Computed example of a mutant assay.
Amino acid sequence: MATPKKETVGWREVVALPELGITGIPAKIDTGARTSSLHANNIELFERDGEEVARFDLDFGEGKPFRHCEAVRVAHRTITSSNGLAQERLIVKTILAMGGQEFRAEFSLADRSDMVFPMLIGRTALRRRFLVNPGRSFLVSNRDDTKEEFL
């Protein structure tokens, strides 16, 4: 049986989080990061139907609209950021749509306000699905699909 051909993504793509109702998110593809990360503020936990749920705001700053979101809490993990500092972060799981694929992915919720991209997609989400061409951008998406609130 032949292995399915993997799509090749660039170092940046435009993606969506359909369960959260968000499209047109600019994302950095980062094979150096194990866990994907999503910019979030006002994070709180509550229980619904015996399941722990995270409520948070996706706030992209400077007068841009923000969105209240909820996602199932998966865990707390210690994540080491690019500056070498380790911090405890909440991990949630939701569907990620990228290139013609939709799949469940884990995201650490973090303050990424000082970063260029509100989302980082790490190697765990990419594994067995995509190849990465670090010299190209927008191979499975269109830069023009970025929503106004992210510009």
Rank of each mutant, 00 (worst) to 15 (best):
G135M: 13
A16W: 00
G63A: 03
I121H: 04
M115K: 03
W11T: 10
R112W: 08
N41R: 12
G100R: 14
A40N: 07
F107L: 06
K5C: 04
T8K: 10
A33M: 01
F56I: 12
N83G: 10
D30Q: 04
S36K: 05
I79L: 06
E62M: 11
G135C: 09
R104Y: 15
N142R: 14
E13N: 04
G135V: 08
S36N: 05
G32I: 04
V9S: 06
R104G: 09
V92Q: 06
L20P: 10
G10K: 02
L120C: 04
I22N: 02
E88S: 12
C69Y: 05
E47G: 01
E88F: 00
I29M: 05
T23S: 14
S108I: 02
P4S: 07
S141Y: 01
K28G: 11
H39D: 14
I25Y: 06
G10P: 03
R67D: 11
L85K: 14
R112S: 08
R129K: 15
G32K: 08
N133I: 01
C69L: 08
R129T: 05
T31G: 05
E88M: 09
F130S: 05
D59M: 07
R12H: 04
V14G: 08
E70L: 10
D145I: 02
D114R: 13
T80F: 06
I43H: 00
M98Y: 01
D59H: 12
R104F: 14
L120Q: 02
T146D: 04
I95W: 10
T35W: 03
M119I: 13
Q101H: 11
A125H: 10
G50L: 05
R34V: 13
T94P: 06
S108Q: 09
I79V: 15
I22V: 13
P4R: 10
F60T: 12
K6V: 06
G10I: 03
S37Y: 09
H68S: 13
L109C: 07
N142T: 08
S113M: 02
R73W: 13
F56D: 08
T94V: 10
